[in-house]
């Protein structure tokens, strides 16, 4: 535990050296390291810097890319941009709910998948689109989403073994 604590100490010190007392870059740095924003670390940050904890908490809950909860293993991002919407992006969300039982912002109980919507992936010509773990898929239909998900699940099952 003490070793871990000194690790956290290092991360914070590094971040502070780089960004000074600028809250958002500090949080981005912490998130990069822990993949989310652990409450204890934010409390330490507040104590160390004197930045009021409520300001840190506000920033952490304000921005889309900052998260107070650990992320799932596979991130599914469905584009909720206008073009994707009028070309049937909503149906993809519905399909994912059918298959995985999660709505945007939720994680499957086994921590495998997390579904998010993003404002625009910027590939409107291939709407509706989604990104799974950084890989882009375009011109999707609900059927194709089903296929992609079952492939991911198979792979995940193989990894388990």
């Amino acid at each position: 535990m003490s070793r871990q604590l000194s690790d956290v100490e290092d991360v914070l010190q590094n971040a502070l050296n780089k960004h000074g007392l600028s809250v958002v870059p500090l949080l981005q740095e912490i998130q990069e390291h822990f993949r989310y924003l652990p409450e204890e670390v934010l409390r330490m940050l507040s104590r160390k810097t004197g930045i009021p904890l409520i300001e840190i908490y506000h920033a952490a809950t304000f921005y889309n890319s900052l998260s107070l909860t650990p992320r799932a293993r596979h991130q599914i991002k469905i584009c909720a941009g206008t073009t994707c919407h009028i070309r049937g992006g909503g149906k993809l969300i519905e399909e994912i709910f059918q298959v995985l039982g999660i709505r945007p912002g939720e994680i499957t109980p086994n921590g495998e998948f997390m579904l998010e919507t993003v404002n625009c992936l910027g590939c409107c010509a291939f709407a509706p689109a989604m990104v799974v773990d950084g890989k882009y898929y375009g011109n999707l239909t609900p059927g194709e989403v089903r296929k992609i998900l079952s492939k991911l699940r198979e792979r995940a099952a193989l990894m388990e073994k």
Binding site: P52, I54, E55, Y57, H58, T61, F62
Partner: peptide
């Protein structure tokens, strides 16, 4: 005090 503040959006 800065005990309370806003959160979320």
């Amino acid at each position: 005090g800065k005990a309370i503040g806003f959160a979320h959006r």
